[in-house]
Nucleic acid binder design. Structure first.
Lengths: 139, 139
DNA sequence: CCCCGCTGCTTGATTTTATCAAGGGTATGC
DNA sequence: GCATACCCTTGATAAAATCAAGCAGCGGGG
């Protein structure tokens, strides 16, 4: 029973994530982006501390050299820029350019508008948010 | 505000899904599987009606020819089998072999045990389940 | 019955992602 | 200052995804 519930929860979560990235792909086509590139873009919050390439690799669960490639492509399109870390000469951080911020913004709003989560009431969204926050906390 | 909440929810969901597939990768290494192969395995519920290759492509948001490749690899490892559809000669369905079911089972239990969702109380899990079910319903 | 359009899978060529091994440059501790 | 560990990059390679045809199998008009 608890077993089944847990399994069902996993399925729901994965399905939901699938839906979200599905919606994302619609926006992706219009923005001429691929999934992996969008995943990187997704992580680059303009207001947060810039992420090192290694940190991105960790969040993406992939090899650092892969991040090098993806970063280079984003850079080539003028969406992001690799900058040397101010205090550590080894590490580089990836930050969005102005164009990158705009693309990211358009991506997020598109997904938000069409995600299944948008159909919940505000109160339900808050409940959900609280539950997920707790799950994430003790991870 | 509602805007921020929605954005935060998306981030939580995606992060969670990332964690889950991260945990999955640990199991993946031991089972000698790759992410995409595991995604297919994930979809193949033994008790449900068998899925056509096209349906899998739809759920995975990818090209049918890609599913052909992945199915062939699963088949080659003896984890799944492509069977002709009983009523439609065009379509093929992908079903797990006995070995495939066992691997899938091991995959699911491993992920369940380590997913952040496992840290929630039973009651919280039920609440979460209900909320997600509603979100999925009106999708 | 027999075309004809439609659908579903496959193949081949190509591009994109991802991994691994190796290397160069930079920090940190002794 | 040396050893060590860390971070990014490069090159070679494998995996995965896309696209464009192509080959059946289905189903609905003539």
């Amino acid at each position: 029973m608890s077993q089944e519930l847990a399994a069902s929860l996993l399925n729901q979560t994965m399905w939901l994530a699938g839906q979200i990235s599905g919606r994302m792909q619609e926006a992706l086509d219009r923005l001429d982006l691929t999934g992996p590139l969008a995943n990187v873009l997704w992580l680059l919050q303009p207001d947060a501390d810039p992420l090192s390439l290694r940190a991105i690799a960790g969040l993406l669960h992939c090899d650092p050299s892969n991040v090098t490639l993806l970063s280079a492509k984003l850079e080539q399109r003028g969406l992001a820029e690799r900058r040397p870390h101010p205090r550590d000469g080894r590490t580089r951080t990836l930050v969005l350019t102005e164009a990158g911020e705009e693309v990211r913004e358009r991506l997020l709003t598109t997904v938000m508008r069409h995600s299944p989560l948008a159909g919940l009431t505000l109160e339900e969204q808050e409940q959900l948010h609280a539950l997920l926050a707790k799950a994430i906390d003790n991870a």
